[in-house]
């Protein structure tokens, strides 16, 4: 039963990739491109997010 569910889940996930691929291709080809400042602006939220997850891990471990 579990193997069937695993195969089913893998099939549905591959179906998702097949559905996502054209949108991804379109976004990468014709989607808006960010300037270097746009990408730099994401560094702070990303660092804060990673720091926050580490804080949660420390809280659970303590």
């Amino acid at each position: 039963m579990e193997l069937f569910l695993k195969i089913g889940l893998a099939a549905v996930l591959l179906m998702l990739v097949w559905r996502l691929y054209p949108a991804a291709k379109e976004q990468m080809k014709n989607g808006p491109k960010g300037s270097s400042d746009d990408w730099k602006g994401l560094i702070l939220p990303a660092v804060l997010l990673i720091g926050f997850v580490f804080l949660l891990i420390m809280m659970v471990r303590s």
Partner: peptide, 19 residues
């Protein structure tokens, strides 16, 4: 909206690794 391409490509990579 500039993150679209990166997010979609990232999702495809993650889903394949999940499979």
């Amino acid at each position: 909206s500039f993150m679209g391409g990166f997010l979609f490509a990232g999702m495809i990579t993650v889903v394949i690794a999940m499979v």
